[in-house]
Design a protein around this nucleic acid. Structure first.
Length: 492
RNA sequence: CGGGAAGUGGCGCAGCCCGGUAGCGCACCUGGUUUGGGACCAGGGGGCCGCAGGUUCGAAUCCUGUCUUCCCGACCA
């Protein structure tokens, strides 16, 4: 048990912060609400990014890049959109500094450099992209337009948390344009599936696909679809969103195309995104009191090899043997690191790589060389076994897959245990207080009821599950009729 | 933006009440012994005490302002 990490059971928030910082994923910065993503954390993000990027390309999307700045007048155009983001925008008003004549050695904003029109640091890029799309789209032959952008965005949040909510964050935002509503809706759901696939099969994070209530809908969307995951403290985390934007942005930015029938029509749109928040999800869904536990498929280091030796003769012998193992493992595509740094002893390294969540550790010492064995330790189960060096790379590959699967199963079992139906108000409140997690309950479909429930319990409707069964029932708060259970939880 | 806590070598902290040569642990450097679960010995380097004013012979310590961070709420991915 590590002495340095706050126990989950003692203080979940502090545990999370400890994992992020001591696991070397990120650090606080000098800039309010902004974090420094450290090399190890960035390597993890890169792995996630590269995987998702390939999935986008496999579904026909291409990458592009749009400006960081959005003229204020662009943001105003789609009313709901403007309203939704207005309160959290960073605004550029000047373009020059000058030496402050009253205070030697300091700079001041040059009042003569005021911009004609303020520029907004993008909180999301619909506005600038739809302005651009107007000139890209003339005919149905230009559709569908399937573009993604990897970028940073800024949302001036009141209260921030590493990865989960930072003022600046990294993400991807897909923005597509289609000739018909059906096609756009199909795209919205396709990308939702891509996200769910990535979450479940790469992050080992089970998710529930659903559609948001009006209250939780993206500003400017007709419908917002999402994947919702459950963290180990019983709170939900939205892990990705895919929006059906209807013709809202096409109308706002006057993006029309000439159809086959030679008629001018507004295009149909989608947008979808996942962010560095996924890193936070990974930490909270899988970590334990000894540190991070990373799923093999996205772990920057899948296997670490630690040598154990007395004296330089043994070290040389081990180096030789490890050299062969490295070649073997690397040629079979395993991300392996040999830590032969002599500053730290084996015990230190064991703890260190556990903190960092490396899925497998191989220890090799003189007695292993003698017996032609190594010791393999699994991060997820802490299980240690001594095995023959023969056929090691096959065994490692098998083990990595097994860990991936077992992490998913574990997270899924936890998640499934924490989906509880509630049929009346007392039951609902009880479950929230005693157990947490998702609650399936009937709701009368009104914004007012949802708001009221939120005020009373802090629980919100995470989504209306896509695979939910129709079932007649009564709203847990108002008793009015309802046709389907929706998913409630307290959320991040 | 409200309530609370805190800023002192890279990190974690003590010192502040009661002003008087800036200290401890970890980390770092050198040498040696070690190495199967966070090693040990010896020697060494590093800090205008968040920043700006003020009080004072003298400020890490007292006063004022300001910035930043963390925790709890309202807003959000």
């Amino acid at each position: 048990m590590s002495k340095e990490i706050t126990a989950r059971s003692q203080d979940y928030s502090q545990w999370y912060n400890d994992l992020v910082i001591k696991g070397a994923l990120a650090d606080y910065s000098a800039v309010r609400g902004c974090m420094v993503i450290k090399p190890y954390g960035f390597a993890l993000w890169e792995k996630m990014r590269d995987t998702i990027d390939k999935m986008f390309k496999d579904t026909g999307h291409v990458n592009a890049y749009f400006p960081l700045f959005v003229p204020k007048s662009f943001l105003e155009k789609e009313e709901g959109h403007a309203e939704g983001f207005a309160k959290e925008c960073a605004v550029v008003t000047h373009y020059r500094l000058k030496a402050d004549p009253d205070k030697k050695g300091t700079l001041m904003v040059d009042p003569d450099s005021k911009l004609e029109e303020e520029l907004i640091v993008r909180p999301t890029s619909e506005a600038i992209i739809w302005h651009t799309y107007k000139s890209w789209i003339q005919s149905y032959r230009d559709l569908p337009l399937l573009v993604n952008q990897w970028a940073n965005v800024v949302r001036w949040e009141m209260r921030t948390r590493l990865f989960l909510r930072t003022s600046e964050f990294l993400w991807q935002e897909g923005h597509t344009a289609h000739a018909t509503a059906d096609e756009a809706l199909e795209e919205t759901l396709r990308m939702l599936d891509v996200y769910a696939d990535f979450a479940e099969n790469w992050m080992a994070l089970p998710v529930i696909k659903g559609v948001k209530s009006a209250n939780e809908r993206f500003a400017g969307a007709v419908d917002t679809y999402c994947i919702e995951a459950l963290m180990q403290d019983g709170k939900a985390l939205q892990a990705g969103t895919s929006h059906f934007l209807g013709q809202n942005f096409a109308r706002a930015f006057d993006v029309q195309f000439l159809s086959k029938e030679n008629k001018q029509e507004y295009v149909w749109a989608t947008s979808w995104g996942v962010s560095t928040r996924l890193v936070g999800a990974l930490v909270m869904a899988h970590g334990d009191d000894d540190g991070l536990i990373l799923p093999p498929r996205i772990a920057p280091v899948q296997v670490v090899i630690v040598p154990i030796y007395k004296g330089s003769d043994q070290k040389l012998l081990i180096d030789g043997k490890v050299g062969e193992l490295l070649k073997q493992l690397r040629s079979s595509g395993v991300a392996v690191k040999y830590d032969d740094n002599d500053n730290n002893r084996p015990g230190w390294k064991f703890a260190e790589y556990e903190m960092k969540g490396v899925p497998l550790r191989i220890a090799i010492g003189a007695r292993d060389i003698e017996n032609n064995t190594v010791e393999i330790a699994r991060r997820d189960t802490k299980e240690k076994t001594t095995v023959s060096m023969d056929g090691l790379s096959e065994r490692i590959a098998r083990l990595l897959e097994e860990i991936q699967q077992s992490m998913y199963n574990k997270a899924k079992a936890y998640r499934d245990e924490h989906i509880t139906p509630a049929d009346d108000w007392d039951e609902f409140v009880n479950i929230l207080n005693e157990k947490g997690g998702f609650i399936l309950a009937h709701w009368d479909g009104t914004v007012e009821t949802e708001q009221k429930i939120k005020e009373l319990t802090k629980a919100t409707i995470r989504c209306i599950p896509l695979d939910g069964e129709k079932e007649a029932g009564k709203c847990i708060l108002t008793g009015k009729p309802s046709s389907q259970r929706v998913l409630f939880a307290q959320a991040y």
